[in-house]
Design a protein around this nucleic acid. Structure first.
Length: 505
RNA sequence: GCUCUAUUAGCAUAGUGGCUAGUGCAUCUGACUUUCUAUCAGAAGACAAGGGUUCGAUUCCCUUAUAGAGUACCA
């Protein structure tokens, strides 16, 4: 295999790119980059009835956000364009004709209604209607009509499709990089439509022609295509082309394990299924990882582990490391259940890696949106809070008290922490704080703890009410860090406020 | 129904024809002179079932069960 590796991601623009599609794109990207190859984007819009405005833009934006851009595709035209199948429309007919010429395909004039009736009829008898060798001579097609009659029908403008003539009795040997060898009896294959009556090819024809013309060496796609593999291999053979290598990726299943992850599952179960937010034409909204505050690196890492693993215990991989470690052979065969909790874990890991200064800037923007302004050192606050934050919004969740003094106290905690002797103790804390010039957390800690130990008071009696006074709840980072950041005046003011509160109880 | 595919703890998975089947998430316990949804330490928990092959199978084969995909003039 000396030729350059070329892979493609070929979504159809019927809506936002689902997480499973993104994973397929990612694996294609990783494989291409690992082998120094090209990653192409091809838009499969042969079904014009399902075209959705904005879907293509969405796909491109999503790939860019995740940092897995394509090398060739719409807007990045190279030698194999155009990259939208609708723009390649006039190309396909000749290939369908060639197949008819070589006896591998035929014209069929059965209407959709007729076929439907056949299917219903069979179903009623508990059988399945398959359009193939066993009945094609009883149906309306160029195999039963004379050449003249067929031509006359076409000239008369009768609608027709072109069907592939599947071999009758052959055992096909199929190979898949992930799944290995498989056998399929061609006798159970049906004569798939290759060319539709609307003048467009079906996926099956278009994808073989395009993959060939675009010099695709490896087809990496979802498992839902596995049943079509035999047809595709047969098609390559009929054309006399060398087939690319195939790899079928395992499905992504719902967290509950039943069925593949669908677009509505996410919002139903409280996690995004799409990389970017999406609004449908009729106003329905789907959340996206970007808008929910995820870092693209975290999403990529999470996606990479959906059906693949490096075989080591390392779990955190940046893009370069993924490219380095990725191997199709290590992709799993079984479906991968999607775990939103693990996704959060990845996000948490990546948030920890973000530089505090940068995070502080993001946090500042977030505060701005909430109309909170502050003179406090945000970098310091971020350093303290970050460990327990998964998203930037958690910084607010964890640390809003830095910016807003508590005006009430968590009832349960107050019950436990605020006792009759508390004001007296807090008064002492105030005087210690007041007398402290070096307002570092270490120094404050030393002073206050020194006093507690010396007087043999018990830490709980002081630390709990102190925290409650400063925070309003039993949460947040180390109490002395909070004091240090809040500063002397604010700290004392909060403590005195709490003393008042207790007195009035 | 038919075709194809899969099945290691609650979940994602690693791994092996033969010592205590590894890791992460979740769970539980302890510690951090006592906030915790954080951190640290520890614990419990699995090879779907039944047949073979074999000295020996979670690992190979068959059957069953379960799950999934496909079965369109959709991709």
């Amino acid at each position: 295999m000396s030729q350059k590796v070329r892979v493609r991601f070929a979504p159809s623009p019927t809506g936002p790119l689902h997480i499973g599609g993104v994973r397929t794109a990612l694996f294609n990207y990783l494989f291409a980059k690992k082998h120094g190859g090209d990653f192409l984007l091809r838009i499969e819009d042969t079904d014009q009835t399902r075209y959705v405005e904005g879907a293509e833009t969405y796909i491109i934006e999503a790939l860019n956000w995740l940092n897995i851009p394509f090398d060739e595709g719409p807007g990045k035209e190279k030698d194999c364009g155009p990259y939208r199948q609708s723009e390649r429309k006039n190309l396909y007919k000749q290939y369908a004709d060639a197949l008819i010429e070589s006896g591998n395909a035929y014209y069929a004039f059965d209407t959709a209604e007729e076929l439907d009736a056949h299917r219903k009829d069979h179903e009623a008898k508990g059988k399945t209607f398959i359009y193939n060798w066993h009945n094609r001579l009883k149906l309306k097609n160029s195999l039963v009509f004379s050449a003249e009659e067929t031509q006359r029908k076409i000239d008369n403008g009768e609608e027709y499709v072109i069907r592939f003539k599947s071999p009758e009795n052959e055992t096909l040997q199929l190979n898949d990089i992930i799944r290995g060898e498989m056998q399929v009896e061609t006798s159970i294959l049906d004569d798939k439509v290759l060319f539709k009556s609307d003048g467009m090819p079906t996926y099956h024809l278009a994808n073989i022609v395009d993959d060939h013309l675009m010099k695709i060496t490896h087809v990496i796609r979802g498992e839902e295509w596995l049943p079509s593999l035999a047809l595709h291999v047969l098609l390559y053979r009929a054309f006399g082309w060398e087939a690319p290598k195939f790899a079928h990726l395992p499905l992504i299943l719902k967290p509950t394990g039943n069925g593949k992850l669908s677009k509505r599952d996410g919002d139903k179960m409280g996690f995004p299924v799409f990389p970017l937010q999406w609004k449908t034409a009729d106003g329905e909204e789907f959340s996206g990882y970007r808008e929910d505050g995820y870092l693209p690196e975290a999403v990529v890492n999470m996606l990479a582990f959906l059906g693949w693993n490096p075989g080591t215990e390392q779990e955190i991989f940046n893009l370069e490391e993924l490219v380095e470690a990725f191997e199709l052979e290590r992709v799993h065969k079984a479906g991968a259940k999607f775990d939103p909790e693990k996704t959060k874990w990845f996000q948490h890991q990546y948030l920890q890696k973000v530089d505090d200064e940068i995070l502080a800037k993001d946090f500042e923007d977030y505060l701005g949106e909430k109309n909170v302004s502050t003179a406090l050192n945000l970098t310091k606050i971020v350093t303290l809070l970050k460990e327990r934050a998964t998203f930037v919004s958690d910084l607010w969740e964890q640390g809003s008290f830095f910016f807003e003094a508590p005006d009430s106290y968590d009832a349960k905690a107050a019950d436990k922490a605020f006792k009759t002797e508390t004001p007296e103790l807090l008064q002492k804390v105030v005087s210690i704080i007041n007398a402290t010039e070096d307002f570092s957390a270490e120094n404050l800690s030393e002073k206050v703890k020194g006093w507690i130990t010396a007087e043999n008071i018990g830490f709980g009696k002081v630390m709990m009410p102190l925290r409650l006074a400063l925070v309003g709840e039993m949460k947040g980072p180390d109490v002395f860090d909070i004091l240090s950041i809040l500063g002397k005046d604010e700290s004392i003011s909060r403590i005195e406020k709490a003393m008042h509160f207790i007195d009035q109880k």
